[in-house]
Design a protein around this nucleic acid. Structure first.
Lengths: 254, 254
DNA sequence: CCACTGCGGTCGACAATGTCGACCGCCTGT
DNA sequence: ACAGGCGGTCGACATTGTCGACCGCAGTGG
């Protein structure tokens, strides 16, 4: 049965729609947005609600995502092998670098953050686990673009979204950058996504040498850079952390 | 169409199954566990995989939960009104009490942790957001049991699971405890779930005075208790935080 | 080395199933 | 009081998901 199950795809589309709009959505809004008959949308929403994937505000009748998704998302993290192996290394890296550490994997057209170590002893920070970052303007993303053909395929062509003056928006520029990254073995991103923020990333491979994710350190440009370039000592720390995690995954038998 | 959509319910069951077993599951395992034809299970898994809810280990062919669940789970938190309003109050409470703070809502037969403030300046701790706690042996759970008839209904009767010597396992004992909680307006749990750990919880209501969740402080018995009882000052802090959050939700118009 | 057994995956017939659009009652704003 | 919008229901229809037999492969024990 090589066709996807229609009702399931539609249910997924509804959940993505609910995740996208920051506010609750009514039945009719959902139906028209996805071009479904109201009855059909209602049947799907009813089932999703029953299963806990969607909740309905009893006052307004509008729908939002449900708690079961949080629970299952947590289960995803529990099983995630890369994350489990990387926990301790990421911690060490954050301590050594004195900066925030992210661990990301390719997901659809972006990088999904699966682990986040707060910058040691600093102000309050928000946990980024579960959020997405763009492929073409972050260190994590550019690492994956450089080594994972699937990631490059997902990105496609055409001008990419610009976040700052330094964002690379042209296909040719990004591809050239990726060639450089492959050559030297690490990626950086200096104010390409957020003003004042720079990061350095490196690849994580599994036992078959397939790219499975990336680590990066992330911090204010004043602390991460020197004379306009990222600090070599930080690059070394990130690369050695990435190698350590890869070895832990079984890629280390050189 | 008052019947749930079969394929959707089955897909949900598959995801729950994958979330339950800590290891990856094969197609046949899934099919037999849920009493489905292999072809049917495969169709559902294929669709779930395509949508990112399930991933397949290309080596072994076995299935596990997918990254999209993490992303959607995060979106759930983003929209969650109770959590958004409670963020700052929970922080204040943690600082004032010097202990871990949890924020939980009823979900199925347990309490789902939707926010977790780490104990201030202490050792490394694991984030509990997304995990579940039992209803009958935690401060959060007993608060919800006492005020939310739905929670009481979900719990059912019969001896409950015992975690320590102090866990209440009999229906009558739990109900008596809940009556006491309603009378005094707060719940505690001293070593009823984990040895050496005590917690104090209070109810959060929305603008229509419906129970929507609970807050608690949680810490080692030596710091939370005095002479075998929880410290009154902590009780006061928790209750005032719960009132503050409720007021923020619109319940405060007395 | 080769049956054998288990796996994940495919196929096509069948009818159970989800879909559709008209309809209902309710609430809100006019 | 009315009109217009909402969420929700209903029943006929045929599209759609389901089923069980089948395929090729990999590991295994004789």
């Amino acid at each position: 049965m090589p066709g996807p199950i229609q009702s399931l795809s539609r249910a997924a589309a509804i959940m993505r729609l609910l995740a996208g709009g920051e506010r609750r959505l009514g039945l009719s809004e959902v139906a028209t947005a996805l071009d479904l008959a109201k009855g059909t949308a209602h049947g799907i929403l009813r089932t999703l609600q029953q299963e806990g994937f969607v909740e309905q505000d009893p006052e307004s009748g509008k729908y939002q995502l449900g708690a079961e998704l949080l629970r299952l998302g947590q289960s995803y993290l529990d099983v995630h092998e890369l994350r489990a192996r990387a926990l301790v290394w990421a911690d060490d890296l954050a301590r050594a670098a004195g900066e925030t550490v992210y661990l990301g994997v390719l997901h659809q057209q972006g990088v999904l953050i699966v682990h986040h170590v707060f910058r040691p002893d600093d102000t309050r920070q928000v946990l980024e686990v579960g959020s997405m970052q763009p492929l073409h303007s972050t260190a994590l993303g550019k690492v994956l673009l450089s080594y994972d053909p699937v990631a490059r395929g997902e990105l496609g062509d055409g001008p990419y979204e610009s976040y700052t003056l330094r964002t690379l928006t042209e296909t040719a520029d990004v591809d050239a950058e990726c060639a450089l990254i492959r050559e030297r073995g690490w990626a950086d991103s200096i104010e390409e996504t957020w003003e004042g923020v720079a990061s350095i990333g490196a690849l994580i491979q599994d036992r078959r040498r397939n790219p499975v994710g990336a680590v990066c350190v992330n911090g204010p440009i004043e602390r991460v850079c020197e004379d306009g370039f990222v600090k070599p000592s930080l690059v070394a720390s990130v690369r050695s952390a990435a190698r350590a995690i890869s070895r832990d995954l079984g890629a280390g038998r050189f």
